[in-house]
Structures are given as structure tokens and as C-alpha cells.
Design a protein around this nucleic acid. Structure first.
Lengths: 225, 225
DNA sequence: GTCTCGGCTGTAAAAGTTTCGTAAAATCCC
DNA sequence: GGGATTTTACGAAACTTTTACAGCCGAGAC
């Protein structure tokens, strides 16, 4: 679910777009002028910005320029009125990702939004450590003392979930839901079986685990370091 | 500038709080029910959440629990109606940071908000204390003088029940019903056996308990500090 | 006040129950 | 076919309940 900031001084249009966004299960955030739109863009970090070119006070062009000057990478779609002369060079220059001419259809706007959102793939490539193990999220591989450890997809996903939830006690149900997906309930021992394999690959002594710890009667707990 | 999410089904109250927040130069975000409140909390990452305990659909309690289950650390202040019996340990357990009883004054709410915001700046804490023991509900672990104490499910549940009902004299029947579940009547000594183990783990002198106290002929009583 | 006695409680340890670890078999899925 | 995943099975380990007995408590008798 993604936040969409709509910056437009036309209240009717804002409402229309807002309703439409909600129907598509986006979360709309509204701003009626350039200045407040700019501030909300900084503060609320929307996933995408729809901004009218002509705005009272700070114009849409200035909003874009200013955001890019502040190194805000959020994709921007410019809304322009029929008469506006929109040239692609200007859009490139101000850092917009696409534009659409008013009046536009719901379907068209949504399509462009999805296209822009798709293009702006996010995700940072980083590395996590625990014990003598290093996990490279970007390359999806795991090394132990510099040597690569072969790891299956299920094991990797489970490991990721543990890495994201250190210290906490995680029930098997929670793990199944989170790692295997909703509504999917294999036999309870599935989790155990995979934990065993993580231990065999990453514990100094798999029989006396220090990272993948059992909490009897409840579930498991991952302890980094 | 800080975002405050207000989850309450009473539109009047929402408006009142909204105006008040804006006057104090917070940015209010509104939600009329638990589900949308929960979603906005995840998505818009407010700095603080005000949530009514009683809500149609997903209750305030569920909102809190779910957020904490999703590892959202945002401080939460619970709004409760006059009649509600507010259990402080329950609040701690579900991860609330403070509560305030309706109707409340602007000044009071602002003061608490600032206090909570200030607190959440430094340390974490969904924890209860008694004696030299600390119970971390989120991690589901118990430490004594900083050292983790291993605790079994039955012991943990019993401890939780005591924490929820401090000072009160609790009969064995009541304890069995509440901790072990309705209609389940093992031999009466079961409770005693577990109390013994709590004493051994958490009393300075298990033979002269000061926290888990016997009330002869009736049951037990838990005294924090 | 203090003695006495029956019932209540403390507690270790035995007995019973549940949960877990793990290899191996079965199944799934390219 | 061949690796990955899930299920099975069963011994081991952990936990819970019961047992057993010693010691404690409190009410009434004196």
C-alpha cells in the first residue's frame, strides 16, 4: 500500500483523484498549494507525487526542482492543463518522471502511476552479520568466514525473517505466516526442519545453538552476535 | 513538525483534537476506525498515536497489539472512557505508553504527549518491573539484575496473571480458571508447585517470599516491590 | 497464654505429558 | 532425474502434574 501525494489547488480535482486513489487502495495525501505540498513531500515521504504545473505561490515546476535539489528521489507525475505547453525537455530538466494532460481518465492515470512506480524500483543492497556469518541481501548469498554457504530459497527466506526480527520470540504460526505466506499451513514441523538446517549451516555447535534458539512451548528466537 | 495519528470513531472528538494539535503545530492524521488507523500507522509512520480503547471493528487493544507485533515502535497513548476499567499492566502488555481518561483537557493531553514523545526519544520500554526483576512483554523474556531467567510457559502465564492482578488475594480456583482456562481442574497443588518455582526464580529468599505471598486458607497475593 | 490437632502449605522428586530434534522417507517441482 | 521441501517417526529433552511427607498455621480447649 502506497502513499500518493496530490498537489493541486482545484479542490474538486483533489477530491476526485482522492476517491479514485482510495478505490485503488492507495493512500492519498492532499496539498492545496506548492509550499505545503513541498513540505508534505519532505515530511511524509510519499511513494509518488502528482503535482499540478500551475499552482498559486510556489509552482509545480518549482516544487519539482526544489525536491530534486534536496535529493528527494520520489517519482513525480506532472498534471498539466490542456493549454499548457509541455515539452519533455522541461520535464526532464525539472526532474519529473511523466506527465498527463487534464482532463484525464482514471484508468490512464492509474496506468501511468503504476508504470512510474514500477520503474522506480527501490531497495537498498546491504549486508548483515551475525556470528561469523555475512548475509548479502543484494546478491542473496551468504558467506561464513569468507566461504560461500549454499542455501536454499526456503532457508534464505527464513534466515531473512530471523534477521529482521532479532531477539523476539517468534511462534511457529507467525513464522509460517510471514515466511510461507498467509493461509498456508503445512505441518508444524516444517519450520523445525528448516531451523535444523540453519543450525547445521551456521551454528558453531548445531546441537547447542546460540543464534537460533528454541523457546520451549512457544517457538524460536534469533540472537545475532 | 510531528505527525500525530488520531484513531477515534467520535467525529467531534477527532475534530477537537485535530484543531488543538494544529494549534500546537503538530500535523494531525485522522482515522475513524481501528483497521484504517492501523493501516495509516504502518504507512504514514506518525510520531505518536492517540487511540480510543473502544472502537468499532478492530479495537484499540488490537490495534496496539498488532502494531507491536509488526514491530512498530511508535509511542501510543490510549484514550479511555470514564467507565473503562484500565489495567495498567494490560496497557504495558499491549504496548501502550500512557493513557488518558475522557473527557480530558487540552493542556493535559498536550503535556502527556510531550512527555511520551520525550521518553520515546531515549529508551525503549514495554516492560514491567517488580523487585529486581524486569519482564519484557515484547521479547517475552524475563531478566533479573540484567541476567536472563529461563521461564517455562506455565510459569510465564502465571507470572503475567500476577502482574495483572497485583495486591489482590487470588484463590487457587480463580488462578486455575484464569491461567489454565475454564473447566480445567487439575489437582489443587498444581498452582502451589508453580508458585514455588516463581519464588525460587524471583524471590531474594524463596523461603520468606515478599512478592508471591501466601494467604493462608485462601490463596496467593502478588506484591510488586 | 499456650497446647493440641486437623487442615493447609512448601517442596523435592516421581510420574506423566507434551514438545522438540533430527534422520530418513515421501512428495513436490522444475 | 535431482535438488528442494514437507512429512513421518521416534527417541530425547523439557515441562507439568501428582505424590508424598514434613512442617506450619490457626482455632478452639484449657
Amino acid at each position: 500500500m502506497q502513499k500518493i501525494l496530490v498537489i493541486d489547488d482545484d479542490e474538486n480535482l483533489r477530491d476526485t483523484i482522492g476517491v479514485m486513489l482510495e478505490r485503488e487502495s492507495f493512500v492519498p495525501i492532499m496539498a492545496a498549494d506548492g509550499k505545503s505540498g513541498f513540505e508534505k513531500a519532505l515530511m511524509l515521504k510519499p511513494h509518488l507525487i502528482l503535482v499540478d504545473l500551475r499552482l498559486p505561490g510556489m509552482s509545480g515546476i518549482e516544487v519539482c526542482k526544489q525536491l530534486r535539489a534536496d535529493r528527494v528521489q520520489t517519482p513525480i507525475i506532472v498534471l498539466s492543463a490542456v493549454g499548457d505547453e509541455v515539452d519533455k525537455v522541461l520535464l526532464l530538466e525539472i526532474g519529473a518522471d511523466d506527465y498527463i494532460v487534464k482532463p484525464f481518465g482514471t484508468r490512464e492515470l492509474i496506468a501511468r502511476m503504476r508504470a512510474v512506480l514500477r520503474r522506480s524500483g527501490d531497495d537498498a543492497g546491504r549486508v548483515a552479520h551475525f556470528g561469523d556469518v555475512e548475509v548479502d541481501f543484494e546478491r542473496r548469498n551468504v558467506t561464513r568466514r569468507g566461504k560461500e554457504v549454499k542455501i536454499t530459497p526456503a532457508e534464505y527466506n527464513l534466515l531473512l525473517f530471523f534477521l529482521h526480527n532479532p531477539e523476539r520470540v517468534l511462534t511457529r504460526d507467525l513464522i509460517l505466516n510471514s515466511v510461507w505466506g498467509y493461509e498456508y499451513y503445512p505441518n508444524t514441523r516444517t519450520v523445525d526442519a528448516h531451523v535444523v538446517r540453519l543450525r547445521q549451516k551456521f551454528e558453531v555447535d548445531p546441537a547447542a545453538p546460540t543464534h537460533f534458539v528454541t523457546v520451549h512451548g512457544v517457538g524460536y528466537r534469533f540472537l545475532p552476535q
